[in-house]
């Protein structure tokens, strides 16, 4: 049961949060002009790295804000959390 540092509320128990999958996936604009493959890539395909993963989380039992987290998928450690819209943080060259 890990601890997660909500950028707004501070460090809280994992059970207050929910993960919504990979972060930094922008919804395409002008969707009508996309091929099935391009649209399918947005809808269906996600990375599944062993190591650093950028994820979208929500503080469901807290402030109900969405934020992003850098999680190491092997160690299950959150290396950083940051606000939506902020650039990917430098996590010290961890891979």
């Amino acid at each position: 049961m890990i601890l997660i540092n909500c950028p707004y509320c501070g460090e809280r128990d994992q059970t207050e949060f929910a993960c919504h999958g990979e972060a930094h996936i922008a919804r395409p604009t002008d969707t009508a002009s996309l091929t099935d493959e391009q649209w399918g890539d947005y809808v269906f395909f996600r990375t599944n790295p062993k190591g650093i993963h950028y994820e979208r989380w929500v503080h469901v039992h807290g402030c109900r804000r969405w934020f992003n987290a850098v999680r190491h998928t092997v160690q299950d450690e959150i290396l950083a959390t940051y606000e939506v819209g902020a650039p990917r943080p430098d996590v010290g060259g961890q891979q």
Partner: peptide, 13 residues
């Protein structure tokens, strides 16, 4: 509600 908030907060701020 989560669905609405997620779009508002992450895609259409």
């Amino acid at each position: 509600l989560n669905w609405l908030e997620e779009w508002l907060q992450t895609e259409w701020p």
